[in-house]
Structures are given as C-alpha cells and as structure tokens.
Design a protein around this nucleic acid. Structure first.
Lengths: 339, 339
DNA sequence: TTGTAAGCGTTATCAA
DNA sequence: TTGATAACGCTTACAA
C-alpha cells in the first residue's frame, strides 16, 4: 500500500520511476524537458510525482550537471533600506528565472568579504553580486579560479573584477557640491560615514574636493567630518557645524540618514533651514520629500542597479553573453526647500 | 610544474590528495576534523590546499553526508526595514555556526510562499524560518514530508507548524488601544495595512476590538481603515479621519510608517498633536523618537526574534534539542508626546 | 522515445 | 592513523 516513502518520507527519483514503470532517466527528462517524453508516459510520471509528493534534490542535480541555480549577494549591511531596495530588485529578477539568492553582509571590510566569497563559491554559486569594490588579493584569486561571473554594484571601480553596474559616487558628490556652490553657498561642509575601508565614501570625499576646486572655494579641514550612521549622528553634527566659530552655511550629508537627523534637530532648535544652514542629502529616501522643508538630495538608481545587475549576470550565467560590461547609471539632483 | 589545476582552474579533493601523497579520505578528515589526522600529514595537506587554492565543493559534501548548511528565510517583503532588522539578527547567528542564509520574499500571499518553500526544500535546506503564519495545505505537507525544523516568527499562530518565536500581534494591538483609552481618548481609530491574507493585521484588528469592548467604547466602522503602506498613505488617512463629520480623537496606526506620514502631515497643516488628534504607532522605528512630538509606539523585539529564532532552529538542526518550542516575547508601550 | 552505464566530488563505513 | 569501496540522487553520453 504505502509505497509513498519508507516511513522517512524521503522520496527519490528512483521511487517515482518505479511507480510510473519507467527508468529514472525518463523521469528526469519528463521533469526538465517534458517534450522529450511521450504524452502517455509523461502523464504517468506526473501522477506518480503528485502521489508521492516528490521534490527533486537540486544538490544532486547541480552536482551532476555542474550547473547551479544559486547566486550570492554580498552587501555591507543588510539592515539598511538603501541596500534592501537593491536586494529586492535583484531577488525579483532572479526568481523569474528560477534562481535562488543567498545574501550575506560583510560590514564594510574586505576581510569578512573574503570569507563570504569563499563560502559562496564552495556552495558552487553560478554568479556573485558584490556591493563593495575593494577586495583582498585572495578574494580576487578565488573568483578567478572559480571562473564565475561577478557584478560589482556599489561604485565604479578603477580596476573592476568583471562586470559593473553602478553610478559614480565621485560624480554624484561632485555634482551636489557644485549645485550648492551655484546656489551661492561658500562654506560647504561634507559629512560622511567613516571612510576607512570604504571606497564609496572615499570617492564622495574626492568628488567634493574636486567640486570645491572647480568652484574656486577654499577647502577647510574643519568642514570635512566623518560620523557613524544614524539620526543622532546627524543631529549632533549639524549643531557642531552651525555653532562653530566659522560656521558652515551649507552641509552636504553624504551618507545614511544623517541629513534627516540634522533637519529634525534644526526643527527642535528652531533653526531656519536654509536660513541658518542649508542641508543636502545623498540618497532620495521617501522621507526627504515629506519633511519641512523637503531635503535637497540625489536620486540614485538603487532599484535599477539591482535589476540590471541581476540581468547582465544572468546573461552570462545562461551563456547569452560573454561581454565584460560596465554600466554607468545616471543620477540626478532633486532640488527642494532645504537649500 | 603546473599541477595547480588543469587550465580550467578546477581543483578537487583528489588533486589535493595526490599532491599530499594521501587518499581523499585523509584530506576529507584533515579538513573536517583535523584531530583525526597526524600532525605531519595534516601539514602536508594544508600546504597542498594552499598551493592549489582548493575550495571544497559543499554540494558534493552535503549530498554525501546528507547534511546541509543552508537555512531558508521567507519574509513578506525584503524591502522593509522592520524585516531587515530581523534578517540581520538571523544572519549573524547563522554565520557564527557556519550556515548560509537564503532569503526570499513572498509578498503577503501563501501561494507564493508555497512555491518558495518547495524551492528551498529542493535545495535541501536544513531548516526554514517563516514570517507568515498562514500556509497552504500543500506547504504543510511538503514540510512534514521533508522533516525539516521550522520556526514561525511573525505572529503566534493558533496552529503552529513546528516552533514559534514571536510576540502577540493581538496583545500588542490590544495593549496600545487600552493605553489610549486610559489616556482618555474616546474615538480611537485603527489604521492597518490591507488585512487580506495577512494574519498579523487581522490579529491587530481583533486586539483593537477586544480592547474597545473592555474599555466599553462603542465600535465605529468608520474608524477602522485599511491603507496601503507608505508615508503618503498615512498623510491621507489622518486628513480624512480628522476632517470627518465625527472625527477621531486618537489614531492608532498599526503598520508600516503610516504614523510618520500622518505626523508630518499634521506638521504641514499646523494641526497640534495631540491637541487636534493623538497619534500612536506600532513599530518603534528610530525616527519615532526624533519627530516633534515623539510618537507613542510599541517596542517590539524585532532583533531578538531573529536571534532566538535562529538559535532554536540551530538547536534542532544540530540535534541539541527535539522540543517544539513556542517562545512568546515581550513588547512594551513607549509613551511619548504624540498622545 | 526510452534505457544503460558511468560519473559529478564528497563522506560513511569498515578494514587494515 | 590511514585507506579502499560504496554510496549520496541526479544527469551526461551513448546505445537500443
């Protein structure tokens, strides 16, 4: 009676084959490419699959075929809505082609990234998506040996591993700084996250400096600040920069939700924005538009990066392309009341 | 010279074994339990592993040992900081024990969840973490047959699949509604996300009704509203409920960032909070504390749910426990200026 | 259209 | 402590 798995509930292709009176090979074909099997046999197999509650073992399948449906994604911090916008887009594209997404976060360090790359390659991922653009030599060696396609999505690196889909952090920071200069601000401060081990933050600082030079504004070391992420951080910084002996007239918060914390602190203190100080932000979070005043910011293609990144990775995984593409996506400045 | 992989770069355990002059079994032991191998041989093997840049193939390892290091997590929406707090905590715990996390989102529907559960089981995950508490019969059947441990984390279901780590949405909504009643509000509105296919929202609505009954407040269907997520949604709703013929005197936004959108709309319109209307929220986002006034809300154990959930799952995966535990974590009300 | 045989790269088992 | 052999559950390659 109960051919349906021997107590353990474990059903293998063999069992389905026996039930349908065919060989495992025929079952395999019926599942992966039904057109290769006669209608009659196909129906018997489907019935057996249903009856047994059979689920194919992809571990065995991938091992045998040397093809995997796993893609690894490494971001600096899962717990951050900026990254999750991208993650969501990647995940949608991959699912539609039957791939599975493995996600890990590496903090902002390339050492931890190395361990994760090793773990993912050991799982035989078909491809990798990396947010950081800084990697250890060993990471590079492992990726080269494994021969899997890689997309870097957090920045436009000078020396890419393989493919790239991103915007330019340098250009974005430069554009916003020039925008502030054009609006007439002369003492423009830059607040970023800690730059150590973070190529994106470094590029933003460089972009800011480039813009100051172009606008013929003097660079004041007092006006370049690194802070940990968070609303409190932004609040603290705006107070410090506005109450300094030589105060900033505009502050460009190039990271996280620092600008929001700053604006809310100004509200609490009754400081007019931009009367007392102008505030600009980096990422166009939905919130920026709802605050009073709305915060001037950059619209970055977070979702599109995820989508295009996943797409060109799949093109390579599925052999539709062999190019090492580099896609530079656009950003734009959203001018609002805060500047 | 170049024994280091035959051009393709693919190095198998066999190759390492040959280089070290031992059998593959000895290499396998040296990697998984070095104490079982003599020091001298171990060193030769380590040297060969380094020289060859060998990465073990976990697909083969898992297939052979019938053990997997993969854990599947299914949330309603990756792109939501509430879930990402939990995801982060899960991910940390799993990494520390050498497990990999596969993440997918199922919208709020159990049909899509079913497909994902199937995909994860096909990958031979060692365990599953599910945020939704509503599942199809087929999902339940697959999980039972596969025999993998499962933790549900989004709610306390009446009929759990296996283990549960969560707070009670019913009790949380009830507690906040009673809190508002005790503060003297008499026309308390409830705004939730769409309740269809969402056991958490349904429980919140039930908890609200239970509290109204306890507080002997009449239930007004006009005061129970379902809205899509988002700041705009909250803004729109507060306007509607305050300008109604019989306006609400307090609004409990039981979902997403609706309360933030509402408070910001009140700021824009110059409505005093709580003078014109009181506002309470569900999740204690960092922002709630920074707004003026601060928003009264519930402190929910988002991170602890992830941590404990992952821990008890690992206890079962690693055979340290066989219990079907249900953990009811605490929440608490954070009273602030908005009520 | 279907089946047979030989792997895929590792680990369990048992023997030396 | 080490090794030989046989799985693990599937797919590739080839034969019928």
């Amino acid at each position: 009676m109960s051919e349906t798995g021997k107590a353990s509930g474990l059903v293998r292709m063999r069992d389905v084959a026996r039930m349908a009176g065919v060989s495992t090979m025929t079952v395999s074909r019926a599942l992966s490419d039904p057109s290769k099997v006669s209608v009659e046999v196909r129906e018997r197999i489907n019935a057996a699959v249903q009856a047994a509650g059979y689920l194919p073992n992809r571990l065995a399948g991938s091992l045998s075929s040397r093809r995997s449906t796993l893609v690894g994604l490494i971001v600096p911090n899962i717990d951050n809505s900026l990254y999750s916008t991208t993650i969501k887009a990647v995940s949608e594209v991959l699912r539609q082609s039957g791939h599975q997404l493995m996600i890990a976060d590496c903090g902002y360090g390339s050492q931890k990234e190395e361990a994760l790359i090793g773990a993912f390659l050991a799982q035989q991922v078909a491809g990798l998506i990396l947010h950081n653009a800084t990697h250890t030599d060993h990471s590079r060696a492992m990726i080269r040996r494994a021969g899997v396609p890689v997309v870097e999505i957090g920045n436009l690196p000078a020396d890419p591993l393989d493919m790239v889909v991103s915007y330019s952090n340098h250009e974005a920071a430069r554009a916003m700084t020039l925008h502030l200069a054009r609006l007439g601000y002369r003492r423009i401060a830059l607040v970023t996250l800690p730059a150590r081990d973070n190529d994106r933050t470094l590029d933003r600082q460089r972009g800011y400096r480039a813009a100051l030079a172009e606008a013929r504004l003097a660079e004041d070391p007092q006006l370049v600040v690194e802070m940990p992420p968070g609303l409190d951080s932004g609040a603290e910084t705006v107070a410090r920069l506005v109450e300094a002996d030589a105060p900033a007239d505009a502050i460009f918060f190039a990271g996280d939700v620092l600008a929001v914390g700053a604006l809310l602190e100004c509200q609490r203190r009754g400081w007019a924005v931009p009367g007392r100080v102008a505030i600009a932000a980096f990422d166009n979070l939905e919130l920026m538009r709802h605050l009073m005043p709305g915060i001037t910011t950059l619209r970055l293609p977070r979702a599109e990066i995820g989508r295009r990144g996943a797409e060109i990775l799949l093109d390579r995984i599925q052999g539709r392309s062999t190019e090492r593409r580099a896609v530079d996506l656009r950003f734009e400045i959203v001018q609002r009341g805060s500047t």
